[in-house]
Design a protein around this nucleic acid. Structure first.
Lengths: 145, 145
DNA sequence: CCCTAATCATTAGTACCCTAACGATATATC
DNA sequence: GATATATCGTTAGGGTACTAATGATTAGGG
């Protein structure tokens, strides 16, 4: 008989990991005076400027209301500007400011540092293995039904 | 040359996973009218009643202030009671109420459901592999320096 | 015994994330 | 063209998380 009261359940491990990832990335971003979620939004804009708010919400897998709040703070801090799309007035398109664009290097470097910290002592085979497992779990978690 | 602009970076995968886990567990807990973090606290108390707040903070890997807020809400909702430890008056010990204890079955079942949803189509070997990789990352993430 | 340092919990302020309800705009159907 | 439906963003309210500052209690060193 395995002692059920002692064994760490898998969901506990996932919860711990999820929490630890956020805490650590908060700490890394704080080193360059950024917030985790805001840095992530900027990363999306580095790849493609002028995304709509709902596109950002979808890419971050958060609700639209969350994005509204975040972008309001980011606009106050002059990291982005927001303009209605003239083609479709429902859409709000988000653009990097000069100030936002200036942070590209620091942010991408910091995310790479975070990555190498987390994968300390991992070889490429193990990273590939992990990618595969995470991708499958992600599929299970986000698929309908 | 690999096209760096296309490949999903590992930190993005970790961030996605972390977000998806929270969203999904929020959804599962919402089905039984509970909040993710509060359910986790109750689980710790199911294992060991009368934990102090700092012990709970350590087990959840969050700051003490976070636990204070959570437990105040949980006490208002009659899920737990809090009493100062007579041996050491700095400590606040947290105890399950009858109401809190009543939720044990529903909560543990719901976490198991969550687990089997996430690990759909995983065999035991793959789960063991994942446990190993996650544990090592967790170690990298939480170790000093 | 007193003073200092350590530990524990709380408060205040901020950011992130959710749901629910709502207003504005665009599209589809008649 | 008018009405119905869908989409997009905002607001309001609540839960989860952080840091920094504070107060209360305990433990240690002289």
């Amino acid at each position: 008989m395995i002692d059920e009261t002692q064994r760490v359940k898998d969901w506990e491990l996932l919860a711990q990991f999820s929490q630890a990832y956020r805490t650590l990335s908060d700490a890394f971003m704080e080193q360059i005076t950024m917030h985790r979620a805001q840095a992530t939004v900027l990363c999306k804009l580095f790849m493609q400027d002028g995304l709509t708010q709902s596109e950002i919400a979808q890419q971050l897998a958060v609700q639209g209301a969350t994005v509204t709040d975040m972008l309001q703070r980011m606009e106050e801090n002059k990291l982005v500007t927001r303009r209605r799309d003239p083609e479709d007035n429902r859409l709000v398109r988000v653009y990097l400011t000069e100030e936002g664009r200036k942070r590209e290097r620091a942010i991408t470097e910091q995310f790479l540092k975070l990555e190498s910290h987390i994968f300390e002592a991992f070889d490429e085979h193990e990273r590939a293995q992990l990618r595969h497992l995470l991708t499958r779990m992600l599929h299970n978690m986000t698929s309908e039904r």
